[in-house]
Design a protein around this nucleic acid. Structure first.
Lengths: 200, 200
DNA sequence: TGCAACCGAATGAACGTTCGATTGATGAAT
DNA sequence: ATTCATCAATCGAACGTTCATTCGGTTGCA
C-alpha cells in the first residue's frame, strides 16, 4: 500500500527512539508494545520480526545505549591531557551525556534497578554502562600512585555514584548544571580520590 | 470462618512485607495484587479495604519505609561525637540500613527510578528518603566551616551518591562490606567534602 | 442491632504474542 | 526483456492470559 518510507535500520531506530521516549514518560510499566508500534509507526508484527519478545527488544536497546555512552565519555581526550585533566574530562562527559540524553538516563535507571537486569547479568558483563573502561582508567591512576592505594571498586563507586546522583539532583531541580557547580563537584571527587601522600 | 489470626495492624504489616518481598524478587512488574494477597495471607478485598488502589498501597509503603530509614540512620549518635565522627556514623548507618534491608533498597531503587515518583513528587516533598535530615546535617558542617564552602546539594549528591553506589556494588558482588572498605570509603568522602583551608 | 472488617469469585480492560495474508526486491529461467 | 519463483519484510486483527478493581455477601465485635 504505502511506499516504503523507511528501510530496516530506520525502522529499528524508530522503534528504539519510541521505546526510549515512552519509557521516559510512562515508565517500564506504561509502555506496551502496542504504544511502541503506534509511536514508532512500525507495525507490531514488524517489531516482532526483529525482536522475538519484548524482553529481547529491551535488551537490545540496552546494548545500543551502552555503546552510545561508551563512545561518548572517552571522546575528545587530548594526547596532552595529564591524568587529572582526563579524570575531569571523563567525569564531565559522563554527566553531560546523561543530561543530553535524558531518555537514556531514565532507561538505564529503570533497567538497572529492575530485577530484569539481574536475570541477564551474565550476558551484560559490564556492571554499569561504560564502567569497565572507567574501571581501567581509575586502575591506571592507582598504579601510577596518583589516586589512593585502595580497591579500585571503591573509587569506581565514588566516581560513578557522585555522577549519577548529580544527574538526579539536576533532573529534580535541586541543582543546576553550571560551570561553578561542576568545578566544585570535581574538586570534591578529586580531593577524595587523590593519594594525599603524594604531590600532584 | 477462620478465627482471626491478625489484627488490622498485623494485616497491613503483612501486606507491606509481602509487597516488599515480591517487588524485590519480581520487580514492580511481576507483583500483581493477587500475589500480594496470596503471599501476605490477606484477602484481595481486605487489601482494597485499606488501600483504595495499588498506587495508594505503593505510596503508603514508601512513606512507611522512609520513616524506617529516617529513624535508623540518625540513631546511636553519642553526645560526645565530634562532627567528623557523626559524619562517618550517619554514612555508615545509611549503608548498613540498606544492606540489612535489601528489600527496602530494591523498592526505593525502583520507586525513585520510576516516573511514578515524579508524579507524586509534590506529596513526597523530601527528594530522597532521609535526605532532608542529611541535608541539615551537612549544612551544619558548612556553617561551621568544617566542610567545603559550597552549595549544600553538591555535598548531598556526594554523600548519598557514594553510599548508594556502594550498596549497589556490594549487592552485585563487586565489593565486600568490610571494615577496611568502609573505612577507606569514608576517607574518600571525607577528604572530598572537607574544607582544605582549615585543619580538622 | 449496627457497622467496620473481611472475603474471593466475577468483570472488563489491557497486555504480549501469534499468524495468515500481502508486498517488494532479487535472480534464475525463458 | 520478460516472466516467475522465492523469501524476507511487513502488516494488524485476533487470541488467550493476566491484571486491577468491584461487589454482594459474611463475620464478629461493641
Amino acid at each position: 500500500m504505502n511506499v516504503r518510507l523507511m528501510n530496516s535500520n530506520e525502522k529499528i531506530a524508530a522503534v528504539f527512539a519510541a521505546t526510549l521516549k515512552l519509557i521516559h514518560t510512562n515508565g517500564f510499566h506504561g509502555t506496551p508494545m502496542s504504544k511502541i508500534a503506534q509511536e514508532s509507526d512500525v507495525a507490531i508484527g514488524t517489531i516482532y520480526h526483529y525482536f522475538p519478545s519484548k524482553d529481547d527488544l529491551i535488551f537490545a536497546l540496552f546494548k545500543h545505549c551502552r555503546s552510545l555512552l561508551n563512545d561518548y565519555i572517552f571522546d575528545g581526550i587530548k594526547e596532552d591531557f595529564d591524568y587529572k585533566a582526563s579524570f575531569f574530562h571523563v567525569w564531565r562527559n559522563f554527566v553531560k551525556f546523561y543530561l543530553e540524553n535524558e531518555t537514556v538516563f531514565s532507561f538505564f535507571d529503570q533497567f538497572f534497578s529492575s530485577p530484569y537486569h539481574e536475570k541477564n547479568k551474565a550476558e551484560i558483563q559490564e556492571p554499569v554502562g561504560g564502567q569497565n573502561k572507567v574501571l581501567d582508567f581509575l586502575q591506571e591512576g592507582i598504579d601510577r600512585k596518583i589516586l589512593k592505594q585502595v580497591n579500585v571498586h571503591l573509587l569506581v563507586a565514588s566516581y560513578i555514584g557522585v555522577a549519577l546522583s548529580t544527574v538526579h539532583s539536576i533532573k529534580f531541580k535541586d541543582l543546576q548544571f553550571s560551570e561553578q557547580n561542576m568545578g566544585e563537584l570535581m574538586e570534591i571527587i578529586w580531593d577524595g580520590a587523590v593519594n594525599r601522600n603524594k604531590n600532584n
